[in-house]
């Protein structure tokens, strides 16, 4: 059986702008291979500048890889196949404010992917937009709203609605959860988990928060300076002894954490 998504030796190099043609290319991502199964969540972790954003952008099709192959359901996915990619792999950006077009209503923005990827009459489109909005916890009325009238959490919901409206198999979320307020973050994580259960979506999330990763990821891929140094199931990465770099990424804050919740459980039992 083939994997939902399989990456074989994806890599990316680039030449700095205005450099000489013969100057050395810098490496953003060294050859990376991984697989993703349907309905699972893969977390990509690493420090700033470790290439995790580059990898997610290559998967989502924002950038072209310099080399390597990507297989979707066992079939090769080229960078140029934008139609097939955008029907199956969608992206949610870090800043919902910037990733929504301020000049269009929510409905118009949700219609955009339908216009170019689905052949359906306008009444059906409207219906699909309504049902998608409800799926992400908004109202049909929100279709007439402009982004500036929504709160951060609602904007992020719209961004997710735009991602799932084409019924994709994979959603790539690039740091989409970190900068949110606690209550909104919890709501969005719940929403993503619900959607995963209902629609069988696979997520590829990029984040540096070990707590979120522990909660939602099935597998973790760890990058260090553009190089993949670990790719394993969350359980095993957490329980087995790891390199200090991985330990630091995964177990940061545990000291701080015991200080807050550890005490509280002690007090409650008193």
């Amino acid at each position: 059986m083939s994997h939902l998504l399989e990456a074989v030796d994806l890599f990316k190099t680039f030449r700095p702008r205005r450099a000489w043609p013969w100057s050395k290319k810098s490496v953003a991502l060294e050859p990376t291979s991984f697989t993703l199964e349907a309905g699972q969540t893969l977390a990509i972790m690493g420090e700033t500048g470790s290439g995790k954003s580059t990898l997610s952008k290559i998967i989502a099709g924002v950038e072209a890889p310099t080399g390597g192959e990507l297989y979707l359901n066992g079939q090769k996915l080229n960078y140029a196949q934008s139609k097939r990619r955008c029907q199956n792999i969608r992206m949610v950006f870090q800043d919902s404010d910037k990733s929504l077009n301020q000049q269009l209503t929510v409905g118009q923005q949700l219609e955009e992917p339908l216009l170019f990827n689905r052949d359906m009459p306008s009444s059906e489109r409207k219906q699909l937009i309504n049902s998608t909005l409800r799926k992400v916890g908004l109202l049909a009325e929100h279709a007439a709203f402009y982004p500036h009238m929504l709160s951060t959490g609602q904007k992020q919901r719209v961004a997710i609605a735009r991602a799932i409206i084409l019924d994709p198999q994979i959603v790539v979320a690039d740091e989409a959860l970190v900068a949110l307020d606690p209550s909104v973050r919890a709501q969005i994580i719940n929403l993503m988990l619900d959607l995963q259960k209902d629609m069988g979506i696979s997520y590829i999330i990029v984040t540096h928060s070990p707590q979120i990763v522990k909660h939602i990821a099935d597998k973790i891929l760890i990058l260090y300076r553009g190089k993949m140094i670990a790719f394993n199931e969350t359980e095993r990465l957490l329980t087995e002894k790891q390199q200090p770099y991985i330990e630091a990424l995964l177990h940061e804050h545990l000291t701080n954490h015991s200080q807050i919740t550890g005490n509280s459980s002690a007090k409650v039992t008193e």
Partner: peptide, 23 residues
């Protein structure tokens, strides 16, 4: 309850506690 630290106590993929609605 909504802080990241509290999430670690919960089972993976379980519902997180949250305030309903938006600010």
């Amino acid at each position: 309850k909504m802080s990241l630290q509290a999430h670690a106590e919960l089972d993976p993929k379980s519902k997180l506690p949250s305030l309903p609605g938006a600010v």
